[in-house]
Design a protein around this nucleic acid. Structure first.
Lengths: 343, 343
DNA sequence: ATGAAAGCGCTAACAG
DNA sequence: CTGTTAGCGCTTTCAT
């Protein structure tokens, strides 16, 4: 602890070269004699030199840090996304600052402003409010590239990762139609944001394609952790009950399963279930639950590609906004069976 | 976009004062005339001045950033902890860098080294390997205060937040004993780290206090997301089955509930359940599940207090390591009932 | 290819 | 109380 902080000057001095050369070695620049390189590297090693990230950031105008803003890491969806992002970016020497907007515009604005002030190299975010004019204005004023995570914000020129919810819902509905189901319930939380809008759109489109009117079987929940137990139970005991359910998120799914079990129905014999989003729960449940899934690693790699591409070139923000579609895959397990015969 | 970056010099010039004064206003220093303060603030506003965080960090040797390292945010426990930490620190103007060790020592070392190189003001971490000599050496070489999150690492002088697992388990067992249960199963994942060690210790201590030998009813799982379905089922159908279960984590709990239901037992009539860790699941399940909980906000505030205290004084690392015990509370719900009579 | 020197934007030490 | 000045530790011209 008695050694005061070692600077690049110390390294240069010990190696008998100039600071410039030491810096070039540190940055793996091309123009360095093997001889010099070796001397510098030896000096760095013996001094246990640790370059000051802050100083490099100030001078080179790159913090090698990405700002992430999601509503809440407690949401498994975002936790999963973050894990993959951290993994990808770490490999490239970036670290991630994680902020949570909690669906509060003021917090979202504050977080993005902080990212700006702290000189993030890039930002990945999923604001809860796609329409907020302040948010849009702020995003346009930011000096680093931004990637929207499953959000559409017209008026900004941010790149976006757009999950193909419409197609996902069509896959699920089509499969259930093929099994003879005509009354499919849909349980999701009632956020106004893109994912929910698109899922409902896909659900209705699927019915339209099949030449059927969409039934009134959509259960909207106030939060992703609320229960559909009561409502689904009522629906199941009502006159024209659904024979299948597509449910979003573990909590809604679990409460739905309880309601189904309560009516004495067995899965998949009497009732079929598809989960929007895959998890350990859907995989280990008995019976294992069919699920619509996306690939977090793919998403992370695409986010990184979008960001690094803009960072690579000078006028990064010049190019038009790009969009990457993220496909859904329907993983079929044991929770779907033929529709029960109506009496 | 045509405005080049505004520096504090621009502010000073427009306000007609020196950069020093502008800086003092920015930093809310005491020695500033109201007149000067106002002029500077006006100038900052009209220029939309955003101070460069990087430059301030370089000069003032404080990044106002805390490094967090947990094994995996995908673990709800850590997600919940992180949310509370972000909330607390944000209020004080700090942001959090989040890294995941994934229970890999090399990654853990790498993350901590990065925190060091990036000049974090403080670090909060829960390494998977409390015994690793390299980790211990590294922690001692770090120049900022470190708070261990439910880990004990003798040989370091880091402050620690220690969850009182022993007491928690005693509370749960004592309650079940009072209900007449004598054979309580315990399902947890088999990490070698402190939480698991302590829980088993508490479980055995509770039996000892009650004057009973601890039964052979501990189910250790390889991962927090594995299933105890098979093993518990076997136990329940065996000769001297447990009448109650204490289970750690949602996944283990869910698989356990399936096994219990499979044997035809009803909760709480035929079988009692306590969850280690509270969640939406335990709260919304039917019947609601009794749970051992800690308060994430309390934990976050304590972590912050420990860190800020050391940051406040100069020789922060001089003082001896401190320890804060985090109490468990047993929230009683509807999943525990009197032990069924043995035939 | 290397060295010297000029800052990146800010804070802190020191005069006045 | 305010202004001036010297760096924080590094990268990056610009000469050589």
């Amino acid at each position: 602890m008695n050694d005061r902080k070692i600077r690049i000057q110390d390294v240069a001095a010990l190696a008998g070269v100039s600071v410039g050369s030491a810096s070039r070695v540190l940055n793996r620049a091309a123009n360095v004699t093997p001889d010099v390189r070796e001397k510098v590297e030896r000096a760095m090693a013996t001094l246990r030199y640790e370059p000051s990230h802050t100083a490099r950031a100030l001078r080179s105008r790159s913090s090698r840090t990405i700002g992430c803003m999601f509503s809440d890491v407690t949401n498994p969806l975002y936790a999963r996304a973050f894990r993959a992002l951290e993994e990808s970016f770490r490999a490239e020497g970036y670290m991630l600052l994680l902020a949570q907007g909690l669906n509060d515009v003021q917090r979202e604005l504050e977080s993005l402003r902080t990212f700006q002030a702290r000189g993030m190299d890039g930002v990945i975010c999923a604001p809860g409010h796609e329409q907020s004019p302040e948010l849009i204005a702020l995003m346009n004023a930011m000096s680093m590239p931004v990637v929207l995570y499953d959000r559409e914000m017209p008026g900004t020129n941010a790149d976006a990762l757009l999950f193909d919810h419409v197609d996902g819902m069509k896959q699920a509905c089509t499969r259930l139609f093929a099994l003879g189901h005509e009354r499919i319930a849909l349980a999701l939380w009632n956020a106004g944001s893109r994912p929910v809008r698109m899922r409902i759109e896909g659900y209705q489109a699927a019915y339209r394609s099949a030449g059927m009117p969409s039934p009134e079987l959509i259960l909207r929940q106030p939060t992703p952790t609320s229960s559909v137990y009561e409502e689904l139970l009522e629906m199941l005991e009502g006159p024209k009950p659904p024979t299948a359910l597509i449910a979003q998120g573990t909590h809604i799914l679990v409460s739905a399963l309880r309601a189904v079990a309560r009516t004495g129905r067995r899965i998949p014999t009497d009732f079929s279930v598809v989960s929007i989003g895959d998890s350990d729960f859907t995989q280990t449940h008995d019976p294992a639950i069919s699920a619509l899934r996306t690939d977090p690693e793919f998403v992370a790699s695409q986010a990184m590609a979008l960001l690094l591409d803009r960072l690579g070139q000078e006028g990064g923000s010049a190019k038009a906004a790009r969009t990457v579609r993220v496909p859904y895959e329907l993983v079929e397990r044991d929770s779907c069976g033929p529709a029960p015969r109506l009496l």
